[in-house]
Amino acid sequence: MNAFRLAGDMTHLLSIILLLHKIRAMKSCAGISLRTQELYVIVFVTRYVDLSMKYYSFYNSIMKIVFLGTSISIVWYMRYHKVVKQTYNKDVDTFRHIFLILPCFVLALLINRAFTVIEVLWTFSLYLEAVAILPQLVLLQRSRNIDNLTGNYVFLLGAYRAFYLLNWIYRFFIENHQVRWIPWLSGLLQTAIYADFFYYYIKSWKNREKLKLPA
């Protein structure tokens, strides 16, 4: 474990806690894409299949349980909670996430480190996570006003993978870790997808104005 990865995990955890807090405190999920949240559940389920089989550390296991639990409860709130589900506007959250799931799965079957169930699922989860934010970004572009909590949620979510990029650089040079193209390139793409959001988020923060993404 290094400071970059810890910072990344904490940023990731904070983003999810922030979203869960927004939904529970405001009893609203306005501006949040259910499609993206469902993709994250798929990412965690396929990445943590080895949770019961492989023990790395207490931290690793507890964080996997927390990520699984929080992401599933966010989808539950948005789909089934009697009050929250009224605030979900499915007419604007129209991104067909099957167009992300299938290509990522096919790609994971073709490009992976080993053709085993665990490895292919792990690779699939990395490819899918790289593009999972797209429905949410599309939804933000359609939203006239983005509330601060949602903006902060997306910013923290993008920042966490940027910390992971630093973690991989550290591990490669300091721990002379071997090259790992799949997580590295997926992580690079994932962070790049946030680039324009980061630009508008920082601009709105500097100019103290409402966050607005160009359509």
């Binding site: 995990d9 080895d50 964080m63 990520f67």
Partner: peptide, 10 residues
Amino acid sequence: DTETEAHDEL
């Protein structure tokens, strides 16, 4: 072995 080591991250 390096195989499983690759999955030590979240």
